[in-house]
Computed example of a mutant assay.
Amino acid sequence: MNNAAVTGRLMPISAQLDAGQRVDLIGPNGAGKSTLLAHIAAVLPGVGEITFLHRSIQRYSAAELARYRAYLCQQQAVTLQMPVFQYLALHQPVGAEPQALEQTISYLTGRLALLDKLQYRLTQLSGGEWQRVRLAAVLLQVWPSVNRQSRLLLLDEPSNSLDIAQQIALNQLLAEFCQAGGAVLLSNHDLNDTLHHADQVWLLAEGRLLATGTSEQVMEPNRLGEVYGVHFEYSKRHQRWLIATAL
């Protein structure tokens, strides 16, 4: 993307997301992470140029975008009175081979501990269960075994309401997607999760992109301290673990 911006919310940003990479967006509340994700997903109008597969994002139809990328917004109220399996069916790629589709749904719901929830109505789910259903749906939309055209996952705070076991499962699924050649761009408030799993990190604050690079390059304690307004240091026992304390 080149000078991508949203008036009043996001200053011009130029950056590149490569195939096979997981890139984490970090920064305090109001930094512009959700705005950037929604703009890249083409659900929030803005200015500048966002190019996807050598083509402007504005030249894709909604149906084409659904084939190439999936987008998980930060929050979504449960309003539909349908069972989980029907909700997942709404996200299956057009033309997917039935056997592969069945196997993929079983695989994703198994990894996210949802096999026993497929008959539940969405309104019966807990907050964590609903988040896992949303994740299963967005992953199904672009999972390589049923959608060979998929390239990109855009996830806004996907670990919301997940316990530690499900966060580990999600990280493994994202790694599989990247290994298959997909790219993942996600916002993350868990800095240690970013530290251990992101290939690249984009640091935002007040609608500006302050730094890009590896976690070691971007997540320098003094820089993070200036952005978040707290003191950061690496654990003396575990150098790959950030500790934050009040100033």
Rank of each mutant, 00 (worst) to 15 (best):
Q103W: 05
R111P: 02
G110Y: 10
Y107N: 13
L90G: 06
L108N: 01
Y87F: 11
S106C: 12
S106F: 14
L118M: 08
L112D: 03
A113T: 05
L108E: 04
I105W: 05
I105V: 15
E102S: 06
D116C: 09
L114D: 02
L112P: 01
Q103T: 11
L108F: 05
V94H: 13
L112R: 03
L118E: 04
R111Q: 15
E102F: 10
Q103R: 13
K117R: 10
L118A: 00
Q103A: 15
E97K: 12
T104K: 02
I105Q: 04
Q103M: 12
Q99G: 10
L90H: 14
A100Y: 01
V94E: 15
A100I: 02
L101D: 00
S106N: 11
I105S: 03
P93K: 04
F85S: 07
E102I: 13
L90V: 03
L101C: 04
L108G: 03
T104P: 01
F85A: 12
L118W: 03
G95H: 06
E97G: 11
L101N: 00
Q92S: 08
L114C: 03
Q103H: 13
A96T: 09
L115H: 09
H91I: 04
L114Y: 00
L115T: 15
A89D: 06
I105D: 06
R111V: 09
L112F: 05
Q99Y: 09
L114H: 01
A96E: 02
A89I: 10
Y87L: 10
A89W: 05
Q92G: 08
L112K: 03
H91A: 10
L88P: 00
H91R: 11
T104M: 00
T104I: 12
S106T: 14
Q92N: 12
Y87G: 09
Y107T: 08
H91V: 05
A113E: 12
L114R: 04
S106Q: 15
A113V: 04
L118V: 01
A96W: 02
G95F: 07
S106L: 15
L90A: 14
